[in-house]
């Protein structure tokens, strides 16, 4: 029998590429349709961050002094960066759910492009995060935050946030493929993401922290991202240029390196994990 098996016609590269693009778009549109039917899905990237802004800008912020600076200008870049950190969450939740419900298996049994399964999920998640970023920027403008350094630098700051969101999306893609339950995905948010975003210069200057914690915070890559965003938006309080660590002294460069490193590690890992599903 084996010898009788048919040989397929090979399809031109351009056809396959076209399908990869249109299949990815189909998967993206699926997620966007979810948002249309269930707008509460967007709470994570809208109401929740806005509550953070209110909480920090008006509650905690009333007692936090930034030497020589304005707390709200100091705060908003931290909020932006924190939100981009959480870009890893929606894709993780979506993938875990789709794996559990057999949706990924259905996709894999269809003649759709393999790449589109992950690209579509990641694309939708990225779009969701960008929507969150726009809302946050508007929210920042509303409470008096302003980028101070002109159009080029401002766009650079936004671009850096987008790159970082993309990097975190690829982290979330990999984690979504290995985590077994939605609960585990959520606890990842609390156990890993919260300390990472809080033990940093995100909401308060690190200068007041105990020495050991300050060391951790200063080396925390999230601090570099926040510092980079403050630098590009011109929101650094006077005298806080540079920093005790190399990462804080070269925040934009170290953020670029950090983001590229995450992408270079987690994207291939996600693809590897996706392919391994064939074996287990």
């Amino acid at each position: 029998m084996a010898s009788l098996a048919s040989e397929p016609r090979s399809r031109p590269f351009i056809t396959r590429l076209g399908w990869a693009v249109s299949d990815s778009w189909t998967v993206v549109r699926r997620h966007l349709t979810h948002i249309r039917y269930m707008p509460d899905k967007l709470l994570d990237v809208t109401i929740q961050p806005i509550m953070f802004v209110v909480l920090f800008a008006y509650v905690f912020g009333s007692a936090i002094k930034v030497p020589g600076g304005n707390y709200r200008s100091f705060l908003m870049p931290g909020i932006y960066a924190q939100n981009m950190m959480f870009a890893s969450m929606p894709i993780m939740a979506a993938l875990v759910q789709d794996m559990q419900r057999g949706v990924i298996d259905r996709f894999r049994s269809l003649p759709m492009s393999r790449a589109a399964v992950l690209v579509g999920h990641a694309g939708a998640s990225f779009i969701e995060s960008m929507l969150g970023l726009v809302i946050m920027l508007l929210c920042g403008l509303f409470i008096g935050w302003r980028p101070e350094l002109g159009v080029g630098s401002t766009l650079g700051g936004i671009g850096l946030l987008m790159l970082f969101a993309f990097a975190m999306t690829s982290v979330g893609t990999f984690l979504g493929l290995i985590v077994k339950s939605v609960e585990a995905a959520q606890s990842f948010g609390f156990i890993v993401m919260f300390p990472l975003t809080f033990i940093a210069n995100t909401f308060v200057p690190t200068a007041g922290m105990p020495v050991w914690l300050r060391t951790v915070a200063n080396w925390n890559p999230v601090s570099a991202v926040v510092q980079a965003v403050r630098t590009l938006f011109g929101n650094l309080p006077p005298g806080s240029h540079g920093g005790p660590t190399w990462t804080l002294a070269h925040p934009v460069l170290s953020t670029l390196i950090f983001a590229c490193l995450l992408i270079a590690v987690f994207m291939p890992l996600a693809v590897w994990r996706f392919r391994r599903m064939l074996l287990e």
Partner: peptide, 25 residues
């Protein structure tokens, strides 16, 4: 058709079938 009904809960029945149709090109 798998053991669990692997349809998307947060789409309508029609959306589900149209999506699958698109993925069959």
């Amino acid at each position: 058709a798998g053991q669990q009904a692997s349809v998307d809960e947060y789409l309508t029945g029609r959306d589900n079938l149209v999506m699958v149709g698109r993925l069959y090109h």
